[in-house]
């Protein structure tokens, strides 16, 4: 009986001692160079227009496929509007993308052909003012833009055609999220 108790104590001591040391090691680790991102930060980036992302998050969103997949799903779940890929057009630029209750129209600038107006209108929910726009490319990368305040229910952007955001919006294979 005493022998059994001793064995139990020994096992316990060893297990608890190991567990404490392992806990110490886990707590003293480093997050550098692992490509992992904080879920809280990823969520803030998805829903809070004013959130300033860390370089680590942006890097992971550009390079880490699992992070990109997670972020895409998070957008799917949290964004108010999702504008899917545009059905293949014959040629030329697309004039608009739309989904139920929301439309994004594109108009070239007459003042400068290298610029384009992007007009966002969400009439599905008049109380909803989109604050941030995401353009997700098929390669998993995401472009994000904080939106100006809506004017009479519409938000207008003026973009350089060659900017990543304009190219993404005009690309029929991208998907757009509004939050």
């Amino acid at each position: 009986m005493a022998e059994q108790a001793g064995t139990t104590k020994q096992h316990f001591t060893q297990a608890a001692f190991d567990a404490l040391l392992t806990t110490d090691r886990l707590m003293a680790g480093t997050a550098a160079d692992t490509g992992l991102v904080s879920p809280t930060e990823m969520y803030a980036y998805a829903v809070d227009a004013s959130h300033q992302p860390s370089p680590g998050l942006l890097d992971a969103l550009n390079t880490q496929a699992p992070v990109q997949a997670s972020f895409r799903r998070l957008l799917n779940n949290t964004a108010r509007y999702h504008l899917p890929q545009v059905a293949a057009a014959s040629s030329g630029d697309i004039e608009q993308r739309e989904s139920e209750g929301c439309k994004i129209a594109f108009r070239p600038s007459r003042a400068n052909a290298a610029q384009i107006y992007v007009i966002i209108e969400c009439i599905g929910d008049t109380s909803f003012n989109p604050a941030v726009l995401f353009v997700c490319a098929v390669d998993g990368t995401t472009n994000r833009m904080e939106l100006p305040v809506a004017q009479n229910g519409r938000i207008q952007l003026l973009l350089e055609r060659e900017s990543d955001m304009a190219k993404g919006l005009l690309d029929i294979k991208t998907e757009v999220y509004l939050k």
């Binding site: 886990l26 680790g29 480093t30 997050a31 550098a32 992992l36 991102v37």
Partner: peptide, 10 residues
Amino acid sequence: AELCACLQII
């Protein structure tokens, strides 16, 4: 190392 990083991030 990834497990450590997970906890470090938290």
